[in-house]
Computed example of a mutant assay.
Amino acid sequence: MARPLVADIDLDALRHNYTLARGLASGSRALAVIKANAYGHGAVACALALEALPPGVRPPAFAVACLEEAEVLRDAGVRSPVVLLEGIFEAKELDRVEALGLWLAVHSEWQVQALLAYRPQRPIPVWLKIDSGMHRLGFPPERAADVWARLGAAPDRVADRLLMSHFATADAVDPSDCRKQLDCMRHLAAALGAPVCLANSPATLAWPQAHGDWVRPGVMLYGSDPLACPNEASRRLEPVMTLRSEIIALRELAPGEPVGYGGRWHAPRPSRIAVVACGYGDGYDRHAADGTPILIAGRRAALAGKVSMDMLTVDVTDIPEADIGSEAVLWGRSRYGAVLSVDEVARHCDTISYTLLTGILPRVPRRYVGPVDPVTAA
């Protein structure tokens, strides 16, 4: 019998979340972000599931971080346009960009120079990245007009152009910094007569004034709520990944007995402890605190003691039906109907859902359910 830990990937939930993003920004095109192996969910399976949507509904393009991620999609038969969000890392990659029919973000002067020196058979669509306030990648706004004009003066090399930027605080309660970035990009787009792509997941959910020509839903596609204060739209997100295992052992402890490395947790009463097959060697966060929620047979229980490499321990004293083989859901949807948000688990680990979802390691099988045949994750 195989180890019981699996990551169930609900592709219908993925399609629901994408459709939600598209509906929230009905006047915009929706770029589906599937970088980092679709945030740990399997980029090939997720792309194929979204490409299987009807014409007019399916994503007009996907976004990845780098050429290697794009090559995986093309090798699997994904034909939709793919945007390289970080662009090229060296000039010689332009040959592969052209061969694979990719769209290219440019954020640095050397990338512009490399592109303008290149002689493609067909012009390459370019997304010009502007640093509107995050101060990570992009040209300063005062340089945008010059770079925009240089790209536009090379129609044999550059096809459609678009302005893009990234919000640093669209998920925050205080809207002031996000509003400054939005105002900057609005003025720039108006001055240049340029289409824009600004809205990441939180802005797609909560900033309709930022939707522009394209929105860029990322983590929301996978059912994680990126907002500091959930709203009506974010509450409609459905979890895509369920990290599911089973109880493999049970222990009865007297009051005061410790559990796990370092004896961090001590039984406050006569306690029943379940051992679950999942640990940091699978990507579950070792920093999870005592009390981190886990669903046992559909009921909420609490982590008791430090996470080990292959196992973790759970206080099931108040769940008498818990037994060897009982379902343990680390996050996602239980077979009993209960849902445990990955965002709630992340808060107990003093991290964010992105790190949990992308951190699930290859030894955890992905099991796909939904609109396409089961696929092994790339």
Rank of each mutant, 00 (worst) to 15 (best):
M1R: 07
R3G: 12
D8T: 04
D10E: 12
L11H: 08
L11V: 03
R15K: 05
H16N: 12
N17R: 12
G27N: 06
G27Y: 07
L31T: 08
V33Y: 14
I34Y: 08
A36T: 12
A38R: 11
G40N: 11
H41A: 09
G42M: 05
A49R: 10
A52G: 00
P55K: 02
G56E: 11
R58W: 09
C66V: 14
E69L: 13
E71V: 12
E71N: 06
D75M: 04
A76E: 06
G77H: 01
V78T: 08
P81S: 14
E93R: 01
E93K: 01
D95M: 00
R96A: 08
V97T: 00
A105M: 01
V106A: 09
Q111T: 03
Q111D: 02
Q111V: 06
Q113N: 15
W127D: 05
I130D: 12
S132W: 14
P140Y: 13
P141F: 15
R143T: 04
R143Q: 14
A149W: 00
A154V: 02
F167P: 06
A172H: 12
D174Q: 11
S176L: 13
Q181H: 08
Q181T: 13
L182Q: 07
M185I: 14
R186L: 06
R186D: 06
L188M: 04
L188K: 07
A189P: 09
A189I: 10
A190T: 07
G193S: 01
A194E: 02
P195G: 06
P195N: 04
C197I: 03
C197R: 07
N200V: 00
S201L: 10
A210M: 05
R216S: 07
P217C: 01
V219G: 04
V219L: 13
Y222P: 10
S224T: 08
A228Y: 08
A228H: 10
A228W: 01
E232G: 13
S234F: 14
V240M: 04
M241A: 09
T242E: 01
A254P: 06
P255D: 15
E257A: 08
R264C: 06
R264T: 13
S271V: 14
H287A: 02
H287N: 03
A288L: 12
A289N: 03
G291L: 06
P293Y: 03
P293K: 01
I294G: 02
I294L: 09
A297R: 02
D310E: 12
L312V: 08
L312C: 14
D318N: 13
I319R: 08
G325F: 15
S326P: 11
E327M: 11
E327K: 14
A328Q: 09
V329P: 10
G332R: 11
Y336T: 00
G337L: 05
A338M: 06
V339R: 02
L340Y: 07
D350K: 03
T351K: 00
I352M: 00
S353M: 00
Y354M: 02
T355N: 03
T358G: 02
P362C: 07
V364E: 02
R366I: 09
P371W: 03
P371A: 10
D373W: 06
V375F: 04
V375Y: 04
V375M: 10
